[in-house]
């Protein structure tokens, strides 16, 4: 029983939930107040993209779906929408290891920026698909560009955190 509990506690998915809760705290406070060019930085999208870039598509999708579901609980869009969008973002970012064999920090940052931009565009598109129209405007490209730029700058800081969070096990 205790071994099971220790395994559960040391599992990457438990760590993911805890780390994502802290990041979401920053998302709803600090990043909500600081809006360069009127656009909010999206650290949850950044996390999903980093997970995909480091650990590939499968881990990226699962991480994106889980943190997306948590993010959905503080958003006003239908529950589950951000989950699918962040899952897709993790999947897109997960394509990066297939194309680049020996990656450096800067091309990972670029991959994170591209995946973040696509993920940010997917948000209004997904909203339109479930009938919440009106958000598919030219502005989404500006938003995507700013989010990509911010995430490219933040990626070198978050990549080690994501690597530690999603490490297979911390014991044994």
């Amino acid at each position: 029983m205790s071994i099971r509990f220790i395994r559960f506690i040391s599992s990457r998915w438990t760590r993911l939930v805890l780390v994502a809760s802290v990041l979401m705290g920053f998302q709803t406070t600090l990043l909500n107040d600081m809006r360069p060019f009127g656009v909010m930085a999206q650290v949850m999208v950044l996390f999903a993209a980093c997970a995909g870039v480091i650990y590939g598509a499968e881990i990226g999708v699962v991480a994106g779906l889980i943190i997306g579901l948590m993010y959905d609980c503080v958003l006003t869009t239908p529950l589950g929408l951000a989950s699918l969008v962040l899952g897709a973002t993790g999947f897109i970012a997960g394509a990066f290891p297939y194309f680049v064999r020996e990656s450096s920090w800067w091309n990972k940052a670029i991959a994170v920026a591209v995946a973040s931009a696509v993920g940010e565009i997917l948000f209004p598109v997904a909203q339109a698909l479930v009938g919440l129209g009106g958000w598919v405007q030219w502005r989404i490209f500006v938003v995507a560009a700013v989010v990509a730029l911010i995430n490219m700058v933040l990626a070198p800081l978050l990549l080690p955190i994501v690597r530690w969070t999603l490490k297979e096990t911390l014991i044994g």
């Binding site: 999708v61 779906l65 579901l69 989950s83 699918l84 009938g131």
Partner: peptide, 28 residues
């Protein structure tokens, strides 16, 4: 299997939320 399960859960939640189900409010 986990991806399929999580995706399906998300789709079910979207459906419930758009129908105005109280369960999503309870979860939030």
């Amino acid at each position: 299997r986990a991806i399929a399960l999580l995706s399906l859960t998300s789709i079910i939640f979207i459906t419930l939320d758009l129908q105005g189900s109280a369960s999503t409010s309870v979860l939030r």
